[in-house]
Nucleic acid binder design. Sequence first.
DNA 1: CTGAAAGCGCTAACAG
DNA 2: CTGTTAGCGCTTTCAG
Lengths: 342, 342
Amino acid sequence: MTDAPDRPPLRVTISDVAAAAGVSRATATRALKGEGRFAEQTRARILDISERLGYVPNTMAAELAAGRTGTVGLLLRDASNPAYGLLFSCLQDEANRCGLDLVTVTIGADSGGTKQVTALQRLLGMRVAGLIVATGGVTNAQLEPFADQVPIIRAGRDATGDRVHSVAYDEQSHGALLAAHVHSLGHRRVAVLATDPAASFPEHVRVTAMREHLESAGVEVTPIAVGAGPAEGVDAALALASAGRVTAVMCPSDYRQLAVLRAARDAGMRVPADFSVTGCDGILPGADLLGLTTVRVPVEAVARETVAAMQHLLDTDSDSDDLVRRSYAGPLVAGTTAAVLL
Amino acid sequence: MTDAPDRPPLRVTISDVAAAAGVSRATATRALKGEGRFAEQTRARILDISERLGYVPNTMAAELAAGRTGTVGLLLRDASNPAYGLLFSCLQDEANRCGLDLVTVTIGADSGGTKQVTALQRLLGMRVAGLIVATGGVTNAQLEPFADQVPIIRAGRDATGDRVHSVAYDEQSHGALLAAHVHSLGHRRVAVLATDPAASFPEHVRVTAMREHLESAGVEVTPIAVGAGPAEGVDAALALASAGRVTAVMCPSDYRQLAVLRAARDAGMRVPADFSVTGCDGILPGADLLGLTTVRVPVEAVARETVAAMQHLLDTDSDSDDLVRRSYAGPLVAGTTAAVLL
DNA sequence: CTGAAAGCGCTAACAG
DNA sequence: CTGTTAGCGCTTTCAG
């Protein structure tokens, strides 16, 4: 034996605590969680001992034995994007305001679909009580099979089918809001960065709404097809603008708006003097200083409602038939990157 | 083949799979994880059945039985701050590049110290194989007691003592780098937003380094004591600048730099014409467009080394005596908010 | 190659 | 009020 005899065992179990206190494991359990009946004095002693021993209850064993889990899982997208980072943060805040324990598993943005499934499995394997999905990387079809084992809520984007709940951003309104603004500024020839639905579905929805709104208002729209790369289509947009073919460039995200702004600066073009630009998100710290014209996505509201809905679903004994399907639109932020057409 | 006769049981266990395949649980286990010896044919059948049944292994039971955990816990700070969001993201990427499973627990920025401990307990309760701590909210003293049960690495800031490892930002260099830049620009009267160590220790370290460097170079430093609020001290700084008492304002974070920039704009003062401003972080998307003068914190390097170190600690059988204690400095980003003094 | 049996650490009825 | 007795779902020797 090379170990010091008086150092507490590497892993203190409830048996150790019970033994040291001269009671049975059951009593220790009850005292530790303050449930059931027990003598206040025994309890104090047990609490004291457990603390002295550095006892940390083994969650796995506890939940396995109890047959239920006190945590809800959060499947998250890459948090380097401030919009997701904020959503994450708000979700977490809401959750521990409501007394829900959240465990998060993320999948890097670059990973293929397989990784996302792995992450899903990991959460389900933990037998979480509920699941919040805040990533587009996992499809509704992949979620569907588990929807009757555990309540699943998609946060930030719509779900399809009738088993997976959702509390989403109203991206359609966002697109329309932006389009209305640009139109009201007098622009009649507009370029739109049209994201491929496979690259980013939310962006696609925004763009579609923009185009529809614009076109129905008689604006001439020039779509520029783009994929996931944030700088894609920027050159094309700039070319159109410098040729005078369009007076505004609408981007489906603030990241792309930044890219356009950057390119414009490098090309010596002035915004909004030479052409107007819009984006979408409004989360970037410093967006105000840049004067970004955008829509401020209602992260807080979505986070709040997601957690509230989860709590409701968890409380409701059986899966009642109310499918949660809400959506929220954020306000337009009229910045200085889009101006009245002279 | 008979399509699922009924809906599969709410919770498919390995016994269900074994029964359906006409084998014992032990065989099912082995086949599922491809370890041990078994007939390739049995295996195929078991795999097939488990898939058809929608079997998801119960992680808690598995790890409880196996006595070991395959996941490392990540204790995270509020991710609404892009710097932490990016660290989170990079850590996650690194981890699943290295085949480590990460589960994350976060504590809202507003929560008191109690919540942080709860989160710690939750992770320890899961019996994670290792722990990465990326928040200042939990002290070294709180970590210390668990350090010989599980390897603990602090990411982003220094650890003290000799049990907790750390892979940190070299905030001292960051401060010095910035100070040297401001000095080289010719500034000789500088205001510094001096963060209280209790509000943010990293900021405090940066500031201290700035002051030391500046003062030893003969620069007249005017410290402005600030707490956690991002806008604190901004008015005082502006007053000093507009009175001509200082020619530059150094902030210990880009958030504060933004606040100063905002205030300057509102007050009709121009940066850098009227006075120079610096920050620190360099993570903000769009920092380049704003021309922020800052240091780009080496998030990627820290994430990489943290995960590498964790992997090493996990592989090393016993706790060898090598305490990981590394730190990295990022490059200066000379923006347009700080200019040569005319 | 596969089955039987013994737990992992904890909780949840029941008895005492 | 407290101890006893079964397991939770899975892994893992150790026989067969």
